[in-house]
Amino acid sequence: MKPFQYLRPKTVSEAVSMALDNPEAQYIAGGTNLIDLMKRGIASPPKLIDINHLPLKKIEHRYDRIRIGALALNSDVAQHKLVKTRQPLLAEALLAGASGQIRNMATVGGNLLQRTRCSYFYDVALPCNKRKPGSGCGAEGGINRTHAIFFNGSEVPSCIAVHPSDMCVALAALDTSVVVAGPAGERRILFKDLHRLSTKEPEMDTTLNPGELITSIEVLDNAFTGHSHYLKVRDRASYAFALVSVAAALQMDGGKIWDARLALGGVAHKPWRYWAIELMLRGQPPSEKLFREVAEHELQSARAGEHNAYKIKLTANAMIAALKIAAGIS
């Protein structure tokens, strides 16, 4: 690990100005991903700005939304009464991720910025467009069992890695905005616009500008409680990244689906919100048959590599399973 300068700002504006000084500077919060990357020589920030002392931990309900400070720990968010009662899908997704220890360290802001767990990204001896633009995608012709099946239309992706977060899949399904502080003050980013697809600049995971610091997220109230489920399929029973995950949320009334949300993890460069299926579900009475029809119809757009063709069927099946649980049918 290269030596770095360690900084500890006390205010958000101090933090932002420290970051603006040097474009390679990085914020550190929980550190559960960044330290990992620094140890492997994938990130070498000359300046490390420790934001843990900023007052960004609060979880509160305001008007029509829950606001969660960027430094709120994953475990605190998952256990928070407001989250458990108003956004159970988010709590469920958080608890499906990582381990008790990591959830005690990882923050909401850091979780949003988690980088892919693709083996080629993590091994500096192998090619990776995300780590070293232009070096090629190692996974494309290599071991791609865990890689993406959804891309930006028919464009050839420069990176087939998937976004690893569970929390983000739930946030993608909900109405979430991300509040960031930057040199020009505060701005809000719709969750769907935070992460990028990988076509041109795979080294860029998000649409954040240099120096911008996530300060909180806001999740709008909804009527999904009691009809949501986060389903995670993985190679072992716990403490593993998703092969495929599904955040499903339904608004049910009178035996019909009035509103539906569906987002997928483990299938694309970003959390994958499935708008088309949501529309197809609206107004329908829930049934396994319906879920199978919409899932299989929509998966025609998926594209697999040498080792991940199974993901197409697995994604359909996982959607069916999650929707059934959300709808309360067995």
Partner: peptide
């Protein structure tokens, strides 16, 4: 008082 992975945090951050 909270369980934490000591390998994933820099000592300086625990001041």
């Amino acid at each position: 008082g909270r369980r934490t992975l000591s390998c994933l945090t820099f000592a300086v951050m625990q001041h």
